[in-house]
Design a protein around this nucleic acid. Structure first.
Length: 251
DNA sequence: GGCCAGGCCCCAG
DNA sequence: CTGGGGCATGGC
């Protein structure tokens, strides 16, 4: 069962990717990445950095098979969007991305993400900009960030810049302690913390609950919570979220 | 032209 | 601790 780039890159976990024709593009690891589904397997085989990013060694078959056995609706979502992987993204980039995400729509999050890249990031190719490092973003002031359209999130970004070193502590903490630690950053609440833990630290017991997920949980899993999907709650969440945004599963 | 968006802060009870 | 208003902005 292979990875599906379309589902993986456009399920709302990363805002770095664009698609032109059948080509997926992003700037990662300081280089321009260009991929298509056809040649992906051979490309990733020779690129350990990409293999890690795309989480190629994890037990997706086992997880999908187990989750599918839990209930028919989730099984239908997995069938429909099969091959969705949870990426191993840069924690700093995920922190900033999901600070931008609050009370916002995915289209505009993408646009704001690109604004930060163009304004503060390094140009690694013609009009191709990397996501800015903490050091590069330290140049920013609240006035400037607001002028760039970051709105009320500007002070959150500044606090994240100030606190970025605490990301180094996260691997050594339990998921619950890690969430608590992340929430010491202004603008990081339970949902954003969970997103960071899933999309950057591969914590399968983290379970982001946004407006879409709350709707699914209420209608399809009343009285249940993340533990129902253990030990693969994060993957279940991403399938359910993605399916909900794209119009639901089949059942 | 309103409504709403992968929430969270802050302040009342 | 729980509930609800306010928040910047642009896509639709």
């Amino acid at each position: 069962m292979d990875i599906n780039l379309e589902q993986t890159l456009f399920c709302g976990q990363s805002f770095a990717w664009t698609k032109t024709g059948s080509l997926y593009e992003a700037v990662l690891f300081g280089r321009c990445i260009r991929l298509d589904q056809q040649s992906f397997a051979s490309v990733v085989a020779d690129d350990p950095e990409l293999a890690a990013y795309f989480d190629m060694d994890w037990e997706y078959e086992k997880a999908q098979s187990y989750l599918s056995s839990l209930d028919p609706y989730l099984a239908s979502c997995i069938t429909r969007y099969e091959g969705l992987h949870l990426l191993n993204q840069d924690p700093w980039e995920v922190l900033i991305s999901f600070l931008l995400s609050q009370n916002n729509n995915i289209k505009r999050i993408r646009s704001m993400y690109q604004t930060l890249c163009r304004t503060f990031g390094s140009e690694v190719g013609a009009q191709k900009f990397a996501f800015p490092s903490p050091q590069q973003l330290e140049m920013a002031t609240e006035v400037e960030l607001r002028a760039l359209g970051m709105g009320f999130r500007a002070p959150y970004l500044l606090d994240a810049i100030r606190c970025h070193a605490l990301l180094d502590e996260i691997p050594n903490l339990s998921t619950e302690k890690a969430a608590t630690r992340l929430m010491t950053i202004k603008g990081v609440g339970p949902k954003v913390a969970a997103c960071i833990l899933v999309f950057a630290f591969h914590r399968m017991d983290a379970f982001p609950l946004d407006t879409w997920m709350l709707k699914v949980m209420k209608s399809r899993y009343p009285g249940k919570d993340a533990s129902f999907f253990a030990p693969y709650a994060a993957l279940a969440q991403q399938y359910l979220f993605h399916a909900e945004r794209l119009g639901g599963g089949v059942v």
